[in-house]
Design a protein around this nucleic acid. Structure first.
Length: 174
DNA sequence: GGTAAGATCAGC
DNA sequence: CTGATCTTACCT
């Protein structure tokens, strides 16, 4: 169950100009999936170490995606534990975008797959609407104050907020 | 062809 | 606060 996510937009001339998005400067080999049809998985390598996963949300041809930042592991906890290591508490199995992919076994190989395909290796199901809080996104050095991070209040699985050390003074305009 | 920064995380 | 670790995108 996803309990934390962040929205990312696209190029300057699109509906959601977003300098913090990989798609900001137009399609590239890495960000191509963000410009494709919705319901697909966009994965990328972060800081040379981790894998992060997004759900493409905008119509085909328009860049827009949601980064999955934290989740509750409702089933398969032993497998998640094996993937995360013996020192990690269950509440932290999928806390943070890199950890989430680690716990779920999502890799760069999964980039571009259809999350709505019932036979696919990674699938997404719509759940009940949850009451979400909103605030600035984590780790981005531009558009740092845009409140495009959403999380379920009070959930211990939600990751801690960390502003990028490279981000300008809080309150500065985009 | 070189290089700096990065949608992160864990350990000190 | 810092190091790990490597890909991407931008610069020349």
């Amino acid at each position: 169950m996803i309990v934390e996510a962040e929205a990312y937009g696209g190029p300057i001339d699109g509906p959601w100009p977003d300098s913090a998005a990989h798609s900001f400067r137009g399609p590239t080999p890495r960000s191509a999936v963000m410009f494709g049809p919705p319901g697909r998985l966009y994965t990328y390598r972060s800081h040379g170490i981790h894998v992060c996963a997004n759900v493409v949300c905008a119509e085909d041809g328009v860049a827009g995606a949601v980064l999955l930042r934290a989740a509750v592991i409702e089933d398969g906890a032993p497998l998640a534990a094996a993937r995360r290591g013996p020192t990690v508490a269950p509440v932290a199995f999928a806390r943070g975008p890199g950890n989430l992919c680690s716990a779920l076994g999502i890799t760069l190989q999964d980039n571009g797959i259809d999350l709505l395909d019932p036979h696919g290796p990674v699938r997404l199901e719509l759940g009940v609407p949850l009451d979400a809080a909103e605030g600035p996104r984590v780790g981005v050095s531009t558009a740092a104050d845009r409140p495009w991070r959403y999380w379920v209040s009070g959930r211990p699985e939600v990751s801690a907020y960390r502003r990028s050390p490279r981000a300008p003074t809080p309150g500065a305009s985009d």
